[in-house]
Nucleic acid binder design. Structure first.
Lengths: 341, 341
DNA sequence: CTGTTAGCGCATTCAG
DNA sequence: CTGAATGCGCTAACAG
């Protein structure tokens, strides 16, 4: 059996209050008593029971994190920021993976509530109103990180999608491109963040006096890429596009594969730009020009915001949204047409 | 303030024991009393405080997981298995990232001990004897998952590295290859798991009457790949190797990139095989033939083993090692020389 | 079947 | 500066 505060008190020949005072440095203790207590702690290898402590202080130092899938690289990168910053403030992370099931997320919220977490961070792709509602009901502060939607009902941290798409498009024009196609997932069209990206692209095109042109994909995999190629082969071969700006890295890479398989070369016959900044984008050849999302920072900012709200005892329903800046990574998948001609 | 068991008891006009009995279904309760209690729970939206419950039952239902870096894809895949299976048994995951610092790992162990975790899973690349020693001292059961070392002092789950390398080598010979080079990281040479891989390769070569040939890499990145190419360009151009079996996927891919940059084609001029089964291996073209490690299963088996030891109150120091089988994924990076000639 | 009671390990009054 | 006493919310005897 592990030793308790009582054992320490007995050994040091003081009361448990004194021991408590020493451990927490909460009130003055005579040097002599302190010495004896320290010694007893050492000898007994005493470690305070945080469960008991939580019960009385009503502070669990626990943050619940509900993610869609921890195996997802985006999620784990964000979690990295959450964990590291949380730890700086003595908070521990309670982790759960919902695999995209809204009911399961609600279940986790209940579970975490019973475990007395002080706040919850949601890193999910789905839009779960019921979850937000429950959290509000439970009076648990939360912060949402969502790649697809802007959440109105809770503090959210995401990237500045519009500026990102605008800047990338602008960069492409700087590189001499005029026929810039934007490849978007059809399923993403109703997602707020994708709408912002489209708006950014559209604005930049118009600001440069160019016409936006959209290509629609059914997914990001090889099949979807092949479909796009088939549908647009005519245009592609006729150089109707000099560059394709894809709304996701993976899609860009699969499209590049398809191009290669069809005897074209990147970037000579077609340039490519992606979105995300996945590790893939760096390892693939040619390296993919892309928008790098600051995953770690997103997590870090989210937990900072959460801890702030916990301090303020504010279960806030303000629609505050924190927009993080992104970086355009310029690599070899985009040809510089200025030099070329 | 959240409602407590007392509030429920008062409202249902019973004692707190009765409420406790209803929630835990631990002892018979009259239908009438049960109904009233259920009703009060409903109305008050009562959720038992797990902290208080843990204190008295001495059961936290918490598993601590110490990882080297949650952002690492291998780690997060394993964690997926741990989390999902753990949850099946009502266990929650307390997560911490050590970033490879042994002292930090020990600190986490202490912290987790104070938080009353029932067991700890270590997913790390380093060999941390002190951590194992502390865990033993704290009497906390643990299971280790390590890609590089076999741990003798604690239950370990890993893959059958020797069989994996043997089978891959054997497969390469089946494809008609005789000049099979094994590319290994120099830094990995002293790691037990790499030794097993080398042994598997060597055994398979000798069983087929072939001579093992080693190439040494300083890393897995582009630079390291270039170095290897420079050092062995002569041999490579003279077809001294028909295939290079690399000890890590990333190295294989960077080597393939270098080959391409030097005007060679894969697999026509040189075949490649990797080890790991990373997502990269599937997206890269040509798709990489590789050894797929069952990440999810590794995590799942590890936590099952841990929970079993917790049940048996066994802080076991038996050197039990669980070896999981691997799968050879046959793809386009290896040419079938039988057809060719 | 039910209520009373005694802790779990600790922080925190409140007297001294 | 220190100790005795109280209670955090709950489970588990125990007696009825």
């Amino acid at each position: 059996m592990a030793s308790t505060i009582k054992d320490v008190a007995k050994m040091a020949d003081v009361s448990i209050s004194t021991v408590s005072r020493v451990i927490n440095d909460s009130k003055p203790v005579s040097p002599e008593a302190r010495r004896r207590v320290m010694h007893a702690i050492e000898v007994l290898d005493y470690k305070p029971n945080e469960v008991a402590r939580s019960l009385v202080t009503k502070k669990s130092n626990l943050i619940g994190v509900i993610v869609s899938d921890i195996g997802n690289s985006y999620v784990s990168q964000v979690l990295r920021g959450v964990e590291e910053i949380g730890r700086m403030y003595q908070y521990d992370i309670l982790l759960s993976s919902s695999y995209g099931d809204p009911e399961v997320e609600v279940k986790f919220a209940k579970l975490f509530s019973r475990k007395q977490v002080e706040g919850i961070i949601i890193i999910s792709e789905i839009l779960n109103q019921k979850l937000l509602y429950k959290l509000d009901e439970f009076k648990i502060p939360c912060v949402v990180i969502n790649r697809f939607y802007n959440i109105e009902e809770a503090p959210t941290v995401t990237i500045n999608n519009k500026a990102a798409a605008y800047n990338m498009t602008d960069y492409l024009t700087e590189m001499g491109h005029k026929d810039i196609g934007y490849v978007v997932l059809r399923n993403d069209m109703d997602r707020t963040n994708e709408k912002y990206k489209i708006k950014g692209y559209r604005d930049a095109m118009e600001a440069n006096g160019l016409t936006p042109k959209f290509l629609y994909a059914e997914g990001t995999d090889e099949e979807a890429a092949k479909d796009i190629f088939r549908q647009h082969e005519e245009e592609i071969r006729n150089k109707k596009y000099s560059v394709l700006f894809c709304s996701q890295d993976l899609l860009a890479i699969n499209l590049m594969n398809v191009m290669r398989d069809n005897g074209m070369t990147v970037p000579d016959d077609m340039s490519f730009a992606g979105f995300g900044g996945s590790s893939l984008s760096e390892i693939y050849r040619p390296k993919l020009t892309t928008v790098k999302e600051p995953y770690y920072d997103i997590g870090a900012v989210a937990i900072r915001k959460l801890l702030k709200n916990i301090d303020n005892k504010k279960v806030d329903n303000d629609d505050e949204m924190i927009l993080l800046p992104v970086e355009i990574i310029k690599r070899q998948s985009v040809m510089d047409l200025n030099k070329e001609k």
